[in-house]
Amino acid sequence: MAQNPPDLGDRALSKVVELGIATQLDRSEEIEVDIRTNPVNFIQGKLDSVEISGKGVVVKQDLRVENIQIDTDEVSIDPLKAVFGNIKLTHPTEAEARIILTEADINHAFSCEYIQSKLRGLKMELDGQPVTIDIQQASLDLPGENQFVISTTFLLREQNAVKKMSATAIPQIDEDGNRISLEILAAQGEGLNLKLVMVIIEQLTALLDLRNFDLPGVSLQLHQLEAQLGKLVIHAKSQIAQIPTI
């Protein structure tokens, strides 16, 4: 349904929220907030809708998000606080969120120091012997048809041997709705076993824990994935306990 253009009050509230969200991010190319209400509803403590969109948003762990969109229906607020720019929710509200990650941005995150530190010193058993693994390089290809292709180069410290692995997998949603897991379709590499493949895959997909995208007062629960050509589209339910403001 088409909405009327925002008035000065709507735009002022929207700008306050935009600034508040911007302070919670490492950086962003664009943040837009569209709050819609009318004087009668506002006095009664109601916002008709809130739309938050961002482009080139960088969140935890140096992970860049190509696009993020969060849409709510009616939101209950404290109108007296809102007059002074503090949009305080009187109870949590539900929202829909859509997040787009590009193949290039995921691969950039794999190379950042925080993620690299998580990929070193992995302990497991290989052929009944304890081994320590350092993942030296990792890349993700998104060929479409809801598939991931992950390629890695890793060091087996005890053997001082560098090995390579690639795996084709289908992304799935963990039961808690926070993380993406992968169903392995095929794997190739020297001296591999299933446990080794799963340890490496688990460490790499930890990057895609939705809690990495949470803003203060906003939590996400994943409910649909689309692994498209060159990008991953995440659909999530969002619960908003508080809208960030400055």
Rank of each mutant, 00 (worst) to 15 (best):
T93R: 04
S76K: 12
L80A: 14
A97R: 04
L80N: 13
A109I: 02
D78M: 12
K118P: 00
Q61S: 05
L89N: 02
I115P: 00
D78T: 10
T90P: 00
V83M: 15
K81D: 15
D78E: 15
I106P: 01
D71P: 03
A97L: 08
P92S: 00
I68S: 03
C112W: 02
S117P: 02
R64Y: 05
I87A: 04
D105W: 02
Q61G: 10
I70H: 08
V75D: 00
D71T: 13
S117D: 14
A104E: 15
L89E: 05
D105F: 01
N86C: 11
S76Y: 05
A95P: 06
E74S: 14
D73E: 15
A97I: 02
T102C: 02
A95S: 01
N107R: 09
V59D: 00
Q69H: 14
T72L: 10
L63S: 05
I115R: 00
D62E: 09
E74T: 11
A82H: 07
Q116E: 12
I70V: 13
I115F: 06
Q116H: 11
H108A: 15
N67A: 13
N107Q: 09
N107A: 12
Q61R: 13
Q61N: 10
A97W: 02
Y114A: 13
Q69M: 11
H108S: 11
E103F: 05
L119V: 09
I99L: 14
E103T: 07
L89W: 06
D62M: 07
V59Y: 06
T90N: 11
L89F: 01
F84T: 14
L119C: 02
F84V: 14
L101S: 03
T72M: 11
P79K: 06
L119H: 09
D62C: 06
P79N: 07
C112H: 09
S111P: 06
E113W: 11
A97Q: 03
D105V: 08
P92E: 06
G85R: 07
T72Q: 12
Q116F: 09
N67L: 10
N107F: 06
K118W: 11
A82K: 01
I68T: 01
E96D: 10
G85I: 06
F110P: 01
Q116C: 13
T72W: 12
G85K: 02
V59P: 00
D105Y: 00
T102Y: 01
E113V: 13
I70F: 08
L119I: 04
V83I: 15
N86W: 08
Y114D: 14
